[in-house]
Simulated scan of single mutants.
Amino acid sequence: MKLFLKTKDFSVSGEPFELHWDEELDMLVTRPQPENLARYYESEDYISHTDAKKSLTDRLYQLVKGKNLKNKLQIVENQLDKPVNLLDLGAGTGDFLILARDSGFSVVGVEPNDRARQLAHKKGVELQTSLEDVSGQKFQAITLWHVLEHLPNLEEQIKTLVELLEKDGVLVIAVPNFKSFDAKYYRTHWAAYDVPRHLWHFSKTSISKIFARHQMEVVKIRPMWFDAFYVSMLSEKYKENKLYLISSFFVGLWSNLMAIFTKEHSSLIYILKRRE
């Protein structure tokens, strides 16, 4: 694999990392990949595990989160005739599962982070620690909201997910898109690289090729419009731009406008089903 970009962990350790391009899959791979990844999640700034509302960035994230959750659930519901059993991998503090449960789904969540599981427990949601805890079960819908890029042993994990999926089930995966305008604009400072927590960086080609190995195909792709603004805001903060709110708004807006033509949004939701 060829060296694509040198960057660093801006949010926790400050350590340098490299992104290497897998030409066959059109995918970037983080190098090196630390053995003890858990310590890179030990930060008050890792909002998916905290429900934090301390900073302006936190409050903006939480403000939009509710609407995003409804949009995510609507996408899942559109693929099914009725609410069914749903597995959410990387469930965080459980908010998506709560919404799905209240909408009639039978829900199961997996979240390896202990702190996030404790917060979910306080909300009345009991989460499992790993996919091994749900082995033998079958689900008609499995969701991974910005989770696939975090998973070590990628092929093995995908194999397990496909085995957990009902024959006519749907797999819904949201990931950042390194082909987007904001990724190209920010390069080293693009917050969605989020090394080393993000081990893999996907394109449309890589998602299609990787899942084809497991007899799965992409049937639909949906954009995540807000991500361009949020990722740009974090990226501007990494650049130490005091006017980060203004700058990120215009970069995020331009990225979304460009994506209308290129279809390369900052983040994409892939809907996958088994090949017939």
Rank of each mutant, 00 (worst) to 15 (best):
M1A: 06
K6P: 09
T7H: 09
V12H: 06
E15D: 11
P16R: 15
F17Y: 15
F17N: 11
E24W: 00
V29D: 00
V29R: 00
P32G: 10
Q33W: 08
E35G: 12
R39K: 14
S43E: 04
Y46R: 02
I47D: 05
I47K: 04
K53G: 10
S55L: 05
S55Y: 04
S55Q: 12
D58Y: 03
R59G: 13
L60I: 15
Y61L: 08
V64T: 14
N68A: 05
N68K: 08
L69D: 03
K72P: 01
N78Y: 00
L80N: 00
L80Y: 03
K82P: 01
K82C: 01
L86D: 01
D88A: 03
D88Y: 02
G94A: 12
L97R: 00
A100D: 01
A100Q: 05
R101N: 11
V110S: 06
V110T: 06
P112A: 10
P112Q: 14
K122W: 03
G124Q: 09
V125W: 04
T129N: 06
S130G: 02
S130P: 09
L131S: 03
E132I: 05
S135F: 01
A141W: 07
T143I: 05
L144R: 02
W145N: 05
W145R: 05
L148V: 14
L148N: 11
E155F: 11
E155W: 13
I158M: 01
T160I: 11
E163N: 13
K167A: 14
L171P: 00
V172A: 02
V172R: 00
P176E: 14
K179L: 10
Y185E: 06
R187I: 13
W190D: 00
A192W: 03
V195N: 10
W200C: 05
H201S: 05
K204L: 12
S206W: 09
S208Q: 15
S208I: 07
R213Y: 10
Q215G: 10
Q215W: 07
M216P: 13
I221C: 09
R222L: 12
P223A: 02
M224N: 08
W225S: 06
F226N: 02
D227R: 06
A228M: 13
F229G: 10
K237Q: 15
N241T: 09
N241L: 01
K242V: 02
Y244E: 11
Y244K: 02
S247L: 13
G252A: 10
L253S: 11
W254I: 04
N256Y: 08
L257Q: 13
A259Q: 10
E264F: 02
S266A: 07
S267F: 02
L268K: 12
Y270V: 03
Y270C: 08
